[in-house]
Design a binder for these strands. Structure first.
Lengths: 155, 155
DNA sequence: ATATATAAGGTCAGTAATAGTCAAAAAATC
DNA sequence: GATTTTTTGACTATTACTGACCTTATATAT
């Protein structure tokens, strides 16, 4: 098997897919017990796999009756994509955030697998091979241009 | 008895041939232990025997659960593409030549219309917004990376 | 009401598990 | 003997996991 973090990720994503409400509520301690790990491992998974740039919103409450709610943010219309691009791709963007965005757009059906592999190859630091901050600036311009170009009406 | 690097190369290529998925995943440390050498020896083999021009793509992850993945690029049906890319895309390439190449690949059916629009957006001088000669160098690296990525056998 | 106990979840820094880089030493080849 | 290729190891970078300590909400006793 893969890492524990990956397994927890898969488990949660499966539950999310099954849930027709588009969100999921869990008890941090129960989940930790289920996977036989410390509770903070759950936070690690949430931070690395369910963050904003990957298309999830997480909210929680402490105390008795506490919970963690994971909401999947969906991208349905071209307008959503525009908003997303504007909020995610600023003047500069890291490779990691860029990949998160690409993965998400592939999952949402905006990009084919080939397209996402192609874009990932481009925004790879080794391909760009520039010094930061130039690299993060160019990456942002590329991502913006690519995604905007896909909104063309004639496609 | 040939060199160690050759033995590791043969071993990996044999595994790759057996694997029907077109790619192979290894743990650098395990392989190093198996051949009783330092881990960086594995990197040497990958750099000298499994690079792009030899028809392989290598990707990896560090950290817990890390791995090295070797993907074979298909050359049977796309040998022409590789030749074309190598003859057209040198160390640097102008926007005009780049577009010429993209157009041709689209006509030949290697790229969909969307893909070609997407790539054209990227290699546009305004997107890259770098001074020459840097711009032409980056454009060449991007084109090369894109086309290589489309040859991946695990697509 | 107030204080206290209990039941959640959060943070952060440290440790473990991987892989990458680079230059020097050693071996092979020319 | 010179040059190229291979091998090694010290240092660096990244990702995963753990545990001690912190914060917040709710329930209960006084």
């Amino acid at each position: 098997m893969s890492t524990l973090a990956n397994e927890i990720e898969r488990y949660l994503k499966r539950l999310l897919d099954k849930s027709k409400k588009g969100f999921l509520e869990i008890k941090r301690n129960d989940l930790a017990e289920m996977f036989m790990c410390v509770p903070s491992q759950i936070n690690y998974v949430l931070e690395t796999r369910f963050n904003n740039s990957q298309g999830y919103h997480v909210e929680s409450r402490r105390g008795g009756g506490g919970y963690i709610r994971i909401v999947k943010l969906s991208v349905e219309k071209d307008e959503d994509l525009l908003v997303l691009v504007n909020s995610t791709v600023g003047k500069m963007i890291s490779q990691q955030s860029g990949e998160g965005l690409i993965n998400r757009l592939e999952e949402e059906g905006f990009l084919t697998k080939r397209e996402s592999i192609l874009i990932r190859a481009i925004i790879d630091g080794k391909t760009l091979d520039l010094d930061v901050p130039e690299r993060d600036l160019v990456r942002a311009r590329i991502l913006r241009a690519v995604l905007i170009s896909l909104l063309r009406e004639d496609l």
